[in-house]
Design a protein around this nucleic acid. Structure first.
Lengths: 340, 340
DNA sequence: GAAACATTTTAGATCGATCTAAGTGCAGGA
DNA sequence: TCCTGCACTTAGATCGATCTAAAATGTTTC
């Protein structure tokens, strides 16, 4: 079929109306399941739609009503399974409401994020779920308000003026610290990585507070490279410290995986020579050996909740800003023991 | 700002035109960087756009020209990091062309896939990258041709009539078998999982052919559950066979991860007691210990290539169907040894 | 000075839906 | 018979861009 024919073949409401012997307006009412049309007419129109293979043109409708049925999702890193799970939750809930998700990857770069937001506005998205790139200025929130665009922040936040769905990172850190302390650990390190953003800060602050409240030294903060492969090779950083830790809390599952591998390479036994607590608890935690004791943050549920909030906000833009902060769960597995 | 005000505030080309003292048509020409407008006029219009905070309305434009600048991507499972990497490649290339990706998850269900395709047509996507759900009938390809919708199949194929970007699974299996055979293995099992589709079939056939061409018994095909957690518990299946294998090739990284864990649980040393070869080679392969020898299929590159083919096809729908079949690479690490 | 030409600009139709306001029958009541 | 009300149905304007064909303007040539 050539381009010309295809174009000619394209079925619109007018074609349906002609075929069913009604007006455009009536066909449109049938489309929207209005109770106004008579049942005989309705059936005739529906038959005509089937016969002609009519496909609704959301784009055309959007011009009239201000609903594109598209929402945007911007995440800093698609290849991280954590964000993939988040997306999965978003897609599921949004898909169930008949809307569609435009996906974009900011690469944690503010300028790219800016470009993506503009592109999404050009596409007339009904709203955006945004995990703000590191170093995003809180002024972005004012712009978003100017635009009148419904936005839900996930996992990281830049402003109290926008909805936020996240995790009680501080409580998660407390759970990890408390657990390790209960095993007798006193020299606990926090292995961090990546750029600084609210989720980073909350974890670091949570760690410090939890350590201080037990009179433990909260200063063993060790920065690792961001690439998984390089973390294992940087494991020595753990032992270059003034006080050598007996336990390590990991910033996320990537650090945990990397350290788990690196410790193995050094012939150390996790849980005996050094205790390890992970964060995020993606599938890997169950799959590596020893199984990783880990603070679960439930990315899928966060995605679902963010999507639900966004749908609500789109329906009612004047709602006051809400914050949903999920609890974490400590999954105790095999990677921790008493200090040697 | 209330809803009403916002609506009133919305800036259109007419507003820009009025502000710049030109006509709608001229403003439109500036927008599209036409060489027809004089430079003084162009500057005046651009200034007006900036002053008013004009945002292009792609949806409105789409009504006139048949280009939505949206493409769709349908994958069977979002939480699988393999598909997340695929998507990442797609998003990068598509994003670079100024288009946008609608993401959808078929859950490997044909009816859901059907619904998603319709939804994408309603949104007027310019094309779709489809990893067909298992049991998709090849008749779908005829429908797609009827619709005149550009489609690229990735990783799995249902029809020779559509573009396809995938992996030479058979060659990958041969690499794995040859490598294990070169170490002296003769009893090699293939640990599979999930529903049957072209990629499954090609791997199974490739395994059989590779085994047969070395006069080895190709019949040790073991089915595992699909959930990562359950695979480890089902490791015993490896030893319930008539002939106990000395090496196992894994269908994908999930099986590899599960078995790696399960073997560890049974006190077996991978590479000594049993050799393991993975498939897909996502980040985990480097991260588990022993490091997993694995056949790399390069999901990001596949996504990029699929996106490139789709863009080409959209530009030129009359191209004959193309197939791009990437080579695999065997990454030899630590999970294989000589048979005990 | 007018014709011929190139360069810019524009009015009006158009894409495919929705919305408003008005129109058509038809039954029942005065 | 005429009016009112009810149940449907519809013409025409509209959303915000693009496209076509023509008009306005400026420039050169004879």
């Amino acid at each position: 079929m050539s381009f010309e024919e295809r174009k000619k073949t394209r079925v619109t409401l007018v074609d349906v109306a002609r075929q069913a012997n009604v007006s455009r307006a009536t066909a449109s009412l049938v489309l929207r399941k209005s109770p106004l049309v008579g049942s005989e007419t309705r059936m005739r129109v529906e038959q005509a739609m089937r016969d002609l293979g009519y496909v609704y043109n959301i784009g055309a409708a959007r011009l009239r009503v201000e609903r594109s049925q598209i929402i945007g999702a911007i995440v800093p890193n698609l290849t991280n399974p954590f964000f993939a799970e988040l997306l999965s939750g978003i897609e599921e809930v949004i898909g169930a409401t008949g809307k569609v998700v435009i996906l974009a990857n900011s690469g944690d770069q503010v300028e790219r994020q800016e470009m993506l937001l503009r592109r999404m506005r050009e596409h007339g998205v009904d709203g955006v779920i945004l995990c703000p790139a590191a170093r995003t200025e809180s002024a972005l929130s004012d712009q978003i308000a100017d635009w009148g665009m419904p936005v839900v922040q996930v996992l990281r936040h830049i402003s109290l003026g926008l909805d936020y769905v996240g995790v009680d990172y501080a409580a998660g850190m407390r759970q990890a610290v408390d657990y390790l302390a209960s095993l007798g650990h006193e020299k606990i390190a926090f292995a961090v990585l990546g750029p600084i953003h609210s989720a980073y800060q909350e974890r670091v602050d949570g760690f410090r507070d939890a350590m201080l409240s037990r009179n433990l030294d909260p200063r063993i903060l060790i920065h690792f490279p961001t690439q998984l492969g390089e973390i294992a090779n940087a494991t020595h950083l753990l032992f270059d410290q003034a006080t050598r830790p007996t336990a390590v809390i990991c910033f996320n599952h990537i650090v945990a995986l990397g350290l788990s591998a690196g410790l193995h390479d050094r012939g150390l036994t996790i849980g005996r020579d050094l205790s390890l607590v992970g964060f995020d608890d993606v599938a890997d935690a169950e799959a590596i050996r020893p199984k990783l004791t880990s603070v679960a943050t439930g990315p899928v549920a966060i995605g679902e909740m963010a999507a639900r909030l966004l749908v609500e906000r789109i329906g009612n833009p004047d709602l006051p800003p809400r914050r949903v902060v999920n609890d974490t769960t400590l999954h105790i597995r095999q990677s921790c023991g008493r200090p040697g």
